[in-house]
Amino acid sequence: MSGPMRAIHSLAAPPGPTPARPPLRRGAAAASPLGRSTDPQPSPPTPPSLASRRAVLLALVLAAAPARPAAAAFSLGIPGPKELLREQKKKSASFLLAPIAASRDTLLKAQALLASPTASAEDAEEVRGRIGAAGRDCVPRQRNSIVAFQSKTGVEVCTFSLILKNAASLLANKDPLKVEADTRLGELIQSFSDLGTVVENSNFELIGDREKMKDGLLSTISALDKFEQSVKDCLGV
């Protein structure tokens, strides 16, 4: 075959197969001239969109909503200020009621003096003094000058009134327990006032007058017992 024909034949011939390159492994890092990996670095995370953030917030709100009743129930189990004060008043009830018990004891001793067949004029004065002391400055005409002056300046001097104010401080003015206690307080003060009038106008040596004083003492002791019970009702004891 001549030269030109061989040239044409070589151009028309298909080229031989190209040798395939070995596949690159993704995990393999190609060495760079500086010794560092040439693999592409991971891109930073894309910040959440506004819609996705709202969805997260909504999910948090919905998740927190059922917990509110439980939290409220837990808070209801913790005693509040009124409950704590009420418990403190109950614990101090004996101290608060002590003046009432002392007045009762004083009236009972005056009653024993009146019942004695050997009572003297000195005993009569003691009876009057005991009845005045048992009244706890609640009868205006039985107050001494200092107590009377304090009362005129607006200071509460009646011990029984102070006891009731303390016992009923957590109750509303129209609370039935407080209304009842106020009524009993008024009856007690009136009873002491009536007893004082009987004692002032009686002759200790006369049996009839002494009987009147005995009846007055029994009535006052009964009024004192009723007032004490009303105070206990206000305290819840």
Rank of each mutant, 00 (worst) to 15 (best):
87 E>V: 00
83 E>D: 15
118 T>E: 13
68 R>A: 15
169 S>T: 11
27 G>P: 01
127 V>M: 01
84 L>P: 03
19 P>L: 12
47 P>I: 04
142 Q>T: 06
17 P>H: 08
130 R>L: 02
127 V>A: 05
207 I>Q: 11
224 L>W: 02
185 L>K: 06
153 T>K: 13
109 K>Q: 13
235 L>C: 02
134 A>I: 01
197 T>E: 13
61 V>L: 15
203 N>C: 03
203 N>G: 11
132 G>S: 14
116 S>D: 15
184 R>A: 06
112 A>M: 05
6 R>P: 01
188 L>K: 01
6 R>K: 14
149 F>W: 10
151 S>P: 01
128 R>L: 04
179 V>A: 09
173 N>I: 07
72 A>W: 09
202 S>M: 00
73 A>V: 05
77 G>P: 00
161 S>D: 12
72 A>T: 11
19 P>N: 08
182 D>A: 11
148 A>C: 05
39 D>Q: 13
207 I>T: 13
126 E>W: 02
50 L>S: 10
178 K>D: 01
92 S>F: 03
76 L>I: 03
214 K>A: 11
32 S>E: 10
207 I>K: 11
133 A>D: 02
31 A>I: 12
192 F>T: 03
224 L>D: 04
189 I>E: 08
130 R>K: 12
151 S>L: 07
45 P>V: 08
95 F>A: 14
69 P>Q: 08
40 P>T: 15
95 F>I: 06
110 A>W: 02
147 V>D: 07
137 D>M: 03
63 A>Y: 03
205 E>N: 09
192 F>E: 02
82 K>A: 15
71 A>T: 09
165 K>C: 00
83 E>M: 07
142 Q>V: 05
80 G>K: 08
17 P>N: 08
133 A>C: 00
122 E>M: 07
67 A>T: 15
180 E>Q: 13
85 L>S: 14
12 A>H: 09
148 A>M: 06
169 S>V: 10
164 L>C: 07
197 T>H: 07
218 L>G: 02
123 D>R: 00
120 S>Q: 12
43 S>W: 07
191 S>T: 05
27 G>I: 10
64 A>N: 08
92 S>K: 06
116 S>G: 04
151 S>Q: 14
93 A>P: 07
113 L>A: 11
163 I>D: 05
168 A>R: 00
219 S>E: 00
134 A>M: 03
217 L>H: 02
58 L>K: 10
206 L>D: 13
47 P>R: 08
174 K>F: 07
108 L>H: 08
157 V>K: 04
228 E>I: 00
96 L>N: 04
18 T>K: 10
13 A>E: 15
167 A>M: 06
194 D>H: 06
167 A>L: 06
222 S>R: 11
91 K>D: 00
61 V>W: 08
23 P>H: 10
36 R>H: 11
186 G>C: 06
124 A>T: 01
39 D>Y: 01
58 L>H: 08
130 R>Q: 03
95 F>V: 10
36 R>W: 09
110 A>Y: 02
149 F>L: 14
233 D>V: 03
65 A>G: 08
10 S>K: 11
145 S>E: 15
200 E>R: 13
232 K>C: 03
96 L>T: 09
25 R>G: 10
71 A>W: 11
101 A>S: 13
52 S>E: 15
132 G>T: 15
188 L>T: 02
13 A>K: 14
139 V>I: 12
57 L>R: 14
166 N>F: 01
212 K>H: 06
23 P>Y: 08
142 Q>F: 04
220 T>H: 06
103 S>A: 15
167 A>H: 05
